[in-house]
Design a protein around this nucleic acid. Structure first.
Length: 471
DNA sequence: GCATGATCATGC
DNA sequence: GCATGATCATGC
């Protein structure tokens, strides 16, 4: 069969793909006609796989097997499609992580270095097709916005260093027989996400250790968001993000985390007023975000979002400790939507088939805790010191134990449409549910149609205190 | 206008 | 003093 592009040429694969920009697959069907029944296949719920598998596979007229080689083997190009979602404030974000190849634990452990990894063999060059996800449309009716080659060698050098470091971290755990402990929060941009049709499937490990859930290399959704925004609107993206690490050479001997922590070192033990005098010019010390802004200045970023934090999905939380060591406040999270919580599955092993718990996803991510010590009850007149900053992820057993229990209690309350049954602070030393809206009139709808104040999960300050004392 | 991170207010 | 409920202030 003669194709309208050269399958052996990356440049030509990209040239041909660019026809899709601004079109849908229905409008630009490409090399092989899409069978009529495929034209009606929807991207149901969360599943985006159908777009790639049934969509541009026809466009390019390829039928790749489940192999370790890239889809266009001769060109060394892997074809990937990925959805974007519209943001209410305008622009786009990645709708989900970009799942790359499934990890064969035994084989990956044998790779001598990053250069011989399955990740790089399969994904050194990706033909990235990105479309805007619109609900309730057939897969072929989603408008495509991006079709371009993503060449690993052409990523910013800092990204390459960080991704290589991520791979080292992942393969290190695999070699140690700890594949079952891998989670997304421990790496920066490249992660090992679980990937299975159901949560009971297990794979043999490389070394001694219990069989582990199947996992795939993936680029985090945060990483994809920044990448996609930089492709779509480079000027706006550079207005929005500022890298903390301007010189990639810093990452040759040091991890990104260590580099960030070293930025805080000169300020440890210093009074907030002293830090303010050094780097705090133009900051309004009365504003609620003051301590977060000061922390950003310590890292060396002024004003904009920290690019690496967005890519690695790290959220910074500031904590003020009273003189007895107790944080001033419990820690809040975004308000949940009751309709969504009750459709979630705590054990979802693969986001294509089941909606994972939003709370679990939030708490699997990494946090940067920036801690200030007050000399009293943290009232306005208190003297305050910056005492420490550390990266934190919730201990696995806490997440799977107490947090899961409380989350299930909340699901039960919602299903029963009984707001009085939401888990209270007195019922758990770790996590509870409390109102979180603009005011009492800011409501959400329970299944029985009754309005109830918006709420969110809160981490208890007693628990935060323990975690802070440990570091 | 609204979500979000942070904080305040009340009552037991 | 703490649990619970409510709201503020900012940035997008």
């Amino acid at each position: 069969m003669s194709l309208p592009y050269d399958q052996t040429s990356p440049i030509d694969i990209e040239r041909y793909g660019r026809r899709l920009i601004g079109k849908t697959l229905r409008e630009e069907p490409g090399a092989k006609p899409i069978p009529p029944e495929m034209l009606e296949v929807r991207i149901s719920g969360r599943t985006s796989g159908s777009f790639g598998k049934k969509g541009e596979r026809y466009f390019y007229a390829i039928n790749p097997g489940n192999e370790s080689a890239p889809d266009f083997a001769e060109a060394g190009v892997e074809l990937k499609s990925t959805p974007m979602k519209r943001l209410s404030r305008g622009g786009y974000a990645a709708k989900e992580r970009l799942v790359l190849n499934i990890i064969n634990y035994a084989k990956e452990a044998e790779a001598s270095d990053f250069g011989t990894s399955s990740f790089l063999r399969k994904n050194a060059r990706i033909m990235l097709v990105s479309y805007v996800h619109e609900d309730d449309r057939a897969a072929v009716d989603h408008p495509i916005r991006i079709a371009q080659l993503l060449d690993f060698d052409e990523l910013p050098e800092a990204d390459q260093r960080i991704i290589e470091g991520d791979w080292m971290c992942i393969v290190g755990k695999i070699r140690a027989g700890k594949a079952h402990e891998l989670h997304e929060g421990e790496t920066d941009y490249l992660s090992a996400c679980t990937k299975a049709a159901d949560s009971t499937i297990r794979r043999e490990q490389a070394a001694e250790g219990p069989p582990a859930k199947p996992r795939a290399f993936s680029f985090k959704a945060g990483y994809m968001t920044v990448l996609l925004q930089q492709m779509l609107q480079p000027a706006e993206a550079s207005e929005e993000y500022e890298p903390a690490v301007k010189d990639p050479a810093l990452l040759v001997r040091k991890s990104f985390e260590d580099e960030i922590l070293s930025r805080f070192k000169p300020y440890i033990g210093k009074l907030v007023s002293e830090i303010q005098a050094t780097i705090g010019d133009n900051l309004n010390s009365l504003s609620k975000g003051y301590y977060a802004m000061l922390a950003r200045r310590m890292i060396g970023v002024r004003g904009k979002k920290i690019e690496e934090f967005e890519k690695a999905e790290i959220s910074m939380k500031t904590i003020q400790l009273k003189s007895d060591g107790m944080p001033k406040e419990d820690m809040s999270f975004p308000a949940f939507k009751v309709r969504e919580v009750i459709t979630e599955d705590w054990d979802a092993a693969d986001e294509d088939t089941k909606q994972p718990s939003t709370l679990k996803e939030q708490l699997q991510k990494r946090f940067l805790f920036v801690v200030y010590q007050c000399d009293g009850d943290c009232t306005a007149g208190d003297e305050k010191k910056f005492v420490k900053a550390f990266f934190w992820t919730m201990p696995h057993d806490t997440l799977e134990g107490e947090v899961r229990r409380v989350w299930e209690e909340a699901v039960g309350a919602i299903k029963a449409s009984d707001a009085t049954r939401f888990p209270k602070k007195s019922g758990s030393p770790i996590v509870h549910v409390r109102p979180h809206g603009r005011n009492a009139a800011d409501t959400d709808t329970l299944p029985d149609g009754i309005q109830t104040t918006k709420r969110c999960f809160w981490l208890d300050k007693k628990f935060i205190k323990q975690q802070v004392e440990r570091r």
